[in-house]
Amino acid sequence: MKLVVSLGVLGFMLAAAAPAHAQSDPESAQIMCDLTGDCAEDVADPNAAQGNELTAATPGAPRGGKTRGFSFQRAGATPSQSTRVATAPQPTTQRVAKPAQVGSSDLGLTFMPNSAELTEPAKARLAKYAQVLGGPKLNGRRLRIEGHTDASGSAAINKELSRRRAQAVADFLAASGVARNRLDVVGYGSAKPLPGKSASAPENRRVMAVLL
């Protein structure tokens, strides 16, 4: 019983000693880094953290010989004769990429083909943007939501589609609690391709958030 209690206390101490920034969500941390330049060197990846299990003997259960680990279960013992104790998760860190230009963030969104309808992954990502925008460092700041396309198709149609996509993003953020007067909307069509990319490159199909 003393061993079980000691392992539990050890797990709690390890969790408490983890760096504060390691508890941040990697996606939200990247959004904050892009918009403000406040970039933690690394954050914990919650999808990769896993706990370890240690096996300790139940009082009265047969004990094995000395080992270098924490297993005290005799070979052939039944599950009822041992107790598994979970230790603190071991976080896997994920590096936050430094932005090429602080204050400008590619929202990384996807839409249904030839439409301004947000996909479900796009909605999930925008929900995180709304949370970051409501935080103390960005609450009240204004942004320009920019829609961009590649050069395929009609220039007039592309410009209108880029504007509708930017508007769909602003509408979603507003529905998620971001004040509408903080959001400017503009559609550039294919007029502003990414540096080093041809106007027809698919990477130009994007929606940007620019801090004003």
Rank of each mutant, 00 (worst) to 15 (best):
L3W: 06
L3G: 09
L7I: 07
L7Y: 09
V9C: 03
F12N: 12
A16Q: 14
A16Y: 13
A18M: 14
P19V: 11
S24W: 05
S24H: 09
D25E: 12
A29Q: 05
A29P: 05
Q30K: 03
M32G: 03
C33W: 13
D34Q: 01
L35W: 04
L35K: 01
T36K: 06
C39M: 11
A44W: 04
A48I: 08
Q50N: 14
L54A: 15
T55A: 11
T58C: 09
G60S: 14
A61R: 08
P62W: 06
A75T: 10
P79I: 02
S80P: 03
Q81W: 06
T83D: 00
A86D: 10
A86N: 05
A88E: 11
T92G: 02
R95E: 12
V96H: 11
V96P: 14
V96Q: 14
A97D: 13
P99N: 06
A100F: 09
Q101R: 15
F111Q: 04
N114P: 02
N114C: 01
S115Y: 01
E117R: 00
P121Y: 06
K123V: 04
Y129N: 03
A130C: 04
L133I: 09
L133E: 04
G135N: 10
L138Q: 10
N139Q: 15
R141N: 01
R144V: 09
A156S: 03
N158E: 08
K159H: 03
L161D: 08
R163E: 14
R163G: 07
R164G: 00
R164E: 07
D171H: 03
F172I: 06
S176Q: 15
L183D: 01
Y188R: 11
S200Q: 15
V210T: 15
